[in-house]
Every structure is written in C-alpha cells, then in structure tokens.
Amino acid sequence: MPRVLIVDDSLFMRKILGDILSREGAQVVGEADNGQSAVDKFRELKPDVVTLDIVMPKTGEIGGGIAALREIMKLDPKARVIMVSAMGQHALVVEAIQAGARDFIVKPFQQARIAQALKKVLLSGG
C-alpha cells in the first residue's frame, strides 16, 4: 500500500484528494498546508508519494509548491512528487516538471486521472 503525503493549503481539497487516494488503495500518512510543513513532514514521514499543490500562500521560510518541491528534491533526488494545479497554470507545471516532479493532476479532480498518476509515479522507480 503506497504511503502518501498530501500537501494543499485547502482543507477541503486535502479531504477530497485523501478520499480518492484511499479508494485507490493508498494510505494517507500525513497532510501539510504549506511549503515549510511539507518539507518537514517529508523528512519525518518519508512517504512513497507526495501530492503537492503548486499555488499556496507563503508561510515560513519556504513559499509555494515549487519552492517546497525543490527542497524535497534536495532531501531525496528520487522523491516521487505529483504536482496539483488548477487550470491555466501550465508555466508553473512545466517549471515543476523541470525541477523534478514526476507528474501532475488538475483540479477539479477526476479519480481515474489520479489513479493513473499514482500508478505512473510508483512504476517510475524511486
């Protein structure tokens, strides 16, 4: 059962994504609502997969999703990170993929697309 860390500033989206991931057989081992907390939880929990919201308000030392992604990749260059974006954030998604994200999913979520992304990143090695 893959262990997943969900990072999103929206409580609602963390719940929706957590429900979908659980239905897909994943175990949600932690949640974070900002970039700094995401890095701290990643270090502590060592999840198999991280879902990381691209746009989050800046709190603490680390700003939004891409800054958190860069920190996570420094901690573990083989980290499996799926970026979460809303429509229209193509440029940020490209930047995230270049920074090491394995895949991305777009809000509003579709369960089949999340399952596909989860399968893809787990098969891509770690």
């Binding site: 929206s10 989206m13 809303a86 229209g88 193509h90 809000k107 509003p108």
Partner: peptide, 30 residues
C-alpha cells in the same frame, strides 16, 4: 475551505480560457 476552493477552480478556469485566447499567461492567486 470548500467555498474558497470552488472560487479558486472557477477563476483559474476562467483565466486559463482567457490565456488561451490572448496568448498571455494569467495566474489567479489563492
């Protein structure tokens, strides 16, 4: 949180369409 996320998704979708039409990149903040 649900209402804010609904607004985020609606406005991001709206701006995505405007971006496609105009060629500008438009980002809706949180």
């Amino acid at each position: 949180s649900a209402l804010k996320e609904a607004a985020n998704i609606l406005l991001s979708s709206y701006m995505s369409a405007l971006g496609d039409l105009t060629g500008f990149t438009v980002l809706a903040d949180v």
